[in-house]
């Protein structure tokens, strides 16, 4: 549809005290595109995406949405722009139930007395919409009123995914969405990603499981010690090449190890 990318992150730098987490990270994504973001542990993948969602403020660099420069001071602002993220640790409230988690920060309200300041939570409607959402995603939970802490890791993951696609996001970022899952459930997550793409939603998926990335991503971006060092169309690359980039293919001794497999 549109010519320019949905999101551009240009030359992002970010330090935590002495730790230079990002030093020249860049990424762009088109509407409906699925991008795989890969890199070694501590390469800065999560930090990079948290800069995009407004959790962290970059020290330098630009963020553009639909070609226009933006700054996100907090996650609320990025969410209102249509950017959703499933964080690596899921970031669910364990003491709340599925409905409350799905609608956290975006609760639906009703005003039974039509008086100002007397809006109350519309539990019925939120519950109804949650059930509908889970059915649409073919996610089974015993009850949407179950506390999240009472659910298995895989189910929690499903709730986190449902929550991220509940509000017509333009971009969904998934940080290791398949790490905690059984093989069968991994397929489901990949299905959801394919459905999002079909709906024109962009997806950035971070994963250490390269086979998952090669399964769904249109393009792969490699981050090494906080810097974007390679971008490849999935069709035009191989796992070997990506592995070399990840472990630092420029360094001879490491490249020997990598190709020695």
């Amino acid at each position: 549809m549109s010519e320019h990318p949905l999101i551009e992150l240009i030359d992002i730098h970010k330090a935590f005290g002495p730790v230079q987490a990002l030093s020249g990270a860049s990424l762009s994504i088109m509407p409906g595109e699925v991008v795989g973001l890969v890199g070694d542990n501590a390469a800065g993948k999560s930090t990079f995406m948290k800069v995009l969602t407004g959790v962290h403020q970059p020290d330098s660099g630009e963020i553009k949405v639909n070609g226009e420069r933006v700054t996100f001071r907090d996650p609320g602002e990025s969410r209102r722009t249509g950017i959703e993220m499933i964080y690596q640790n899921l970031a669910l409230a364990p003491n709340l139930d599925v409905v409350a988690n799905v609608f956290l920060g975006r609760e639906l309200l009703r005003n039974p007395l039509s008086l100002p300041f007397l809006s109350v939570l519309d539990e019925k409607l939120m519950e109804h919409k949650t059930i509908e959402l889970l059915q649409r995603l073919k996610i089974n939970v015993k009850s949407v009123r179950l506390l999240v802490e009472k659910m298995s890791g895989g189910q929690q993951q499903a709730v986190a995914i449902a929550r991220s696609v509940a509000f017509e996001a333009k971009l969904v970022i998934m940080d290791e969405p398949t790490a905690a899952l059984a093989v069968k459930e991994v397929g489901k997550v990949l299905d959801i990603i394919n459905n999002l793409r079909a709906d024109g939603v962009s997806v950035i998926i971070i994963s250490h499981r390269l086979q998952d990335i090669f399964n769904v991503a249109d393009r792969i971006i490699v981050l090494q010690t906080g810097k974007t060092i390679a971008t490849r169309k999935t069709k035009e690359t191989t796992m070997d090449e990506i592995v070399k980039f990840i472990v630092g293919g420029v360094q001879p001794e490491l490249s020997t190890i990598a190709s020695g497999r």
Partner: peptide
């Protein structure tokens, strides 16, 4: 609801856009 969310997991509240 937001008070409960903050007590349960402050990061989750923050990442959800709660002030």
């Amino acid at each position: 609801r937001h008070v409960y969310a903050i007590g349960g997991n402050q990061d989750s509240a923050l990442f959800s856009g709660i002030n």
